[in-house]
Design a protein around this nucleic acid. Structure first.
Lengths: 244, 244
DNA sequence: CAATTTTCATTTGTCAGACATTTAAAAGTC
DNA sequence: GACTTTTAAATGTCTGACAAATGAAAATTG
């Protein structure tokens, strides 16, 4: 674990990289304690603030956790699924919002990925996930619901569908695709007619999952994708017309 | 953008969160300049090192970039696809290596996601991506290849397949699934016979993509998944026998 | 002797002030 | 007017210090 002292700028980035590489390579194992900040400062021949900045970089990625007090210090953190979900969602949200990704592109990616889950979800459907899907469909039929709440319920429905596949790695990957799109979905205003349509498609998907018919579930998702894109287009056109 | 000074620990984390939330909410837009470290220190009523630690946390997530000199400072960074790829791969790799995920689980997720790309890739296949796939297949047939090089070529083949879908959001999502599995794949020793088998399946997939037959490409991936899991099982059993 | 309390060393979290380095705008020069 | 020099502002780093937390060891007490 060495750094290049020839470049006296970016020292904290170099130190962070050295430690991160050691973690990724498996040289530092979970729950192992790093040397204290003072010791690291000696090893890398830098000051303690520089070491601290490096450690904060690693903490931001949930690679380490710190504990104060005697026998405290920085410990290699086991990257948990919730932590990974969170990072995934933040990154996906920012990627979509900062790169003016077309709605169609994001939508295509999301539904392609969800279709990947459908057969597994149909095969392994649990009563729990099915109940969640039905409950969210019920919620979506309530008249007083705001557009935001409708979108949030939509996300919950799709999360249940994805989690139903019973594969945590898949759930982790999909978290970004589904939740990262929420801000884009929130831009759509849902009429009573369109909500009815979406609830119908959701019901078809839930029915297919319940019947363990993966192919039908995929079809339902495809129809939902097509309708979502259609809906977004009309909203955009409407907005363009008003703007002009 | 406020912090809770009642808890005098975690100040840098609180500041980082405040700024991050402002970015995600869109209050701070791309390429906008943050106040200088000294000004931030005044605003939040903390010292400059504390502000710096907060900024380093954000830099670790590629949310800001810093520039020295007059009229330099911290700028809101546009999260680029390469940056997002990198974070995605690091996170996925660590998630798999630190949570003793079963090979089958990771494999299932990866191939399910790749199957999601197959129809799009078949539909939009470009000469470029097809050429890359063929080139990697050719490389995989070279006799002197190490197992690591074979795995790397395998990843390159699948990346070309995924990128062929022409959807950057999809490519971003798949980066973690495909590259994050490489360490697990590297644990497999490939015999001449198994390489031959894999090259055959890769060729079938490439042929399907070239023929724009999405269904056949999906089938090829399913067979490849089945064979990969079969291969991993035999390697594990072999290893267990030797260990005992 | 056992249980409890106190002390204490260690480590992180924060602060203040300072200097070095970089950088682009502003001032000066030909 | 084009080029060079100066200068101010900002980040990057260092030193030294103190506060707060924390677990272990020592002291105290029943």
């Amino acid at each position: 674990m060495k750094i290049d002292p020839s470049n006296p700028a970016d020292l904290s980035a170099q130190i962070a990289k050295a430690i991160r590489d050691a973690i990724v390579a498996g040289d530092l194992i979970v729950d192992e304690r790093l040397p204290s900040e003072a010791e690291l400062a000696d090893q890398f021949e830098v000051s303690r603030p520089t070491v601290r900045e490096a450690l904060k970089r690693l903490a931001a990625q949930s690679l380490i956790r710190t504990q104060r007090g005697a026998f405290g210090g920085a410990f290699i953190n086991r990257l948990s699924y919730p932590d990974a979900y969170g990072q995934q969602i933040t990154t996906a949200t920012l990627l979509l919002s900062m790169n003016d990704v077309r709605f169609d592109t994001a939508c295509e990616a999301r539904y392609a990925l969800e279709r990947a889950c459908a057969p597994l979800s149909a095969q392994r459907r649990s009563a729990d996930h099915l109940a969640t899907m039905r409950a969210e469909i019920f919620r979506q039929q309530q008249p007083g619901l705001t557009d935001e709440a409708f979108c949030a319920s939509d996300v919950a429905f799709h999360r249940a569908l994805v989690d139903g596949a019973g594969n945590p790695v898949l759930s982790y990957q999909l978290a970004g695709a589904v939740e990262g799109m929420q801000p884009l979905m929130n831009m759509i205003t849902f009429t009573a007619r369109s909500r009815e349509e979406i609830v119908g498609l959701h019901t078809a998907i839930a029915d297919a999952i319940e019947a363990q018919d993966g192919e039908a579930a995929r079809d339902g998702l495809t129809r939902l994708e097509r309708y979502t894109i259609h809906l977004a287009r009309s909203v955009m056109e409407e907005r363009a017309k008003r703007g002009a």
